[in-house]
């Protein structure tokens, strides 16, 4: 369990770096003018019901530099930036040349910062909640019959271990179990946070899912290299018994396949979470039409319940597919 916590922290750091790209644009937007004020003189079609629905959807779906919580005034997150003094030199040196570094940090005064955004805040909240839950679960570790949080976590852990990871990777996958459990719990918590009022799901941000998929990609390659060595791992691109003349076609396809798998993971999670929230927001946005409100609210509630299922399903699917792909690299054909 301690390893699990450590891996969560590591993953969180990677993701914090991955999720930051969305924020510079968002904060720049908020500096110029709120998007809603821009709209009227842009197009006339923006007004009316369509405009309201669109505004609700965009506000609900996109990352922003502002955090809205009940009872307290709106928080401007672009002020709460975290200085990264150890990157100051790197940033200055590579400011022009290296887009990767300038994505991670933003600087008007020559210093490097990690900028917070709404999704980043909710991602950190997910990490904090998970840490609390897992530390609470640790208290009953070792006892024959876990209670409370330990019981809750154990039910999930056993399900993921015996139902998802080990059947797909075999016994060789056991050392990688902490990774899969971390991914499952992390995605699940982020998904569920989007269903809480005033919440937002960080998995509805392409940068976050890309970070997760990058971790999954690393996991697959690492497992393959650990099992067969680097040479053996690459040899797995060319299955046994395949005639040599198909190699020019097969090799590029297999090689691309290595990358399309995590890419599909990334887009699937992102699209599922975003589409679900878009549908809810669209129905909730139509509430401004008095007659439609009678039917829209029940429909939005029903879709909210469906989203609750999807939140679990997508965390499960991400873990399951990562386990299947990792298993296919461990057990080459």
């Amino acid at each position: 369990m301690r390893r699990l916590v450590l891996i969560i922290l590591g993953l969180a750091w990677l993701l914090a770096a991955a999720a930051a790209p969305a924020s510079p644009a968002a904060s720049a937007d908020s500096l110029v003018a709120p998007a809603a004020q821009d709209a009227p003189h842009g197009e006339a079609a923006e007004e009316g019901i369509g405009g309201i629905v669109k505004e609700v959807m965009q506000h609900h779906l996109t990352d922003s530099a502002h955090l809205q919580l009940p009872l307290i005034p709106e928080i401007d997150l672009s002020r709460l930036r975290i200085p990264l003094p150890f990157l100051d030199g790197v940033y200055r040196a590579t400011r022009e040349g290296n887009p990767l570094v300038s994505w991670m940090v933003q600087s008007e005064d020559g210093h490097a910062y990690l900028i917070l955004s709404k999704h980043l805040v909710f991602m950190c909240l997910a990490i904090a909640l998970l840490l609390l839950l897992l530390l609470a679960a640790r208290r009953s570790a070792g006892s024959a019959a876990p209670r409370g949080a330990g019981n809750l976590v154990e039910a999930f852990v056993v399900f993921i271990r015996d139902g998802v990871v080990l059947p797909n990777t075999g016994e060789e996958g056991r050392p990688y179990l902490p990774f899969f459990l971390t991914v499952f719990f992390f995605i699940l918590t982020m998904n569920l946070l989007g269903l809480v009022p005033f919440g937002s799901s960080a998995t509805g941000n392409l940068s976050v899912t890309a970070g997760l998929a990058l971790c999954a990609f690393g996991m697959m390659q690492w497992a393959g290299i650990r099992a067969h060595g680097l040479g053996g791992h690459l040899k797995g691109l060319m299955p046994h018994g395949v005639p040599l003349f198909v190699a020019p076609i097969l090799l590029p396809i297999e090689f691309l396949g290595m990358f399309t798998k995590p890419f599909a993971l990334c887009v699937r999670l992102f699209a599922n979470m975003m589409a679900g929230h878009a549908v809810i927001a669209a129905f909730m946005g139509l509430i401004v039409v008095p007659v439609l409100a009678l039917t829209n609210v029940p429909v939005a509630v029903a879709i909210g319940l469906l989203e609750l299922f999807v939140a679990f399903l997508q965390a499960f699917i991400f873990t399951m597919l990562t386990a299947i792909f990792t298993g296919s690299f461990i057990h080459q054909h």
């Binding site: 599909a264 699209a271 599922n272 589409a275 399903l313």
Partner: peptide, 12 residues
Amino acid sequence: ALIEGVALFGTV
């Protein structure tokens, strides 16, 4: 889920 993923690509 695999089919749904492709469908969501289209939706996006």
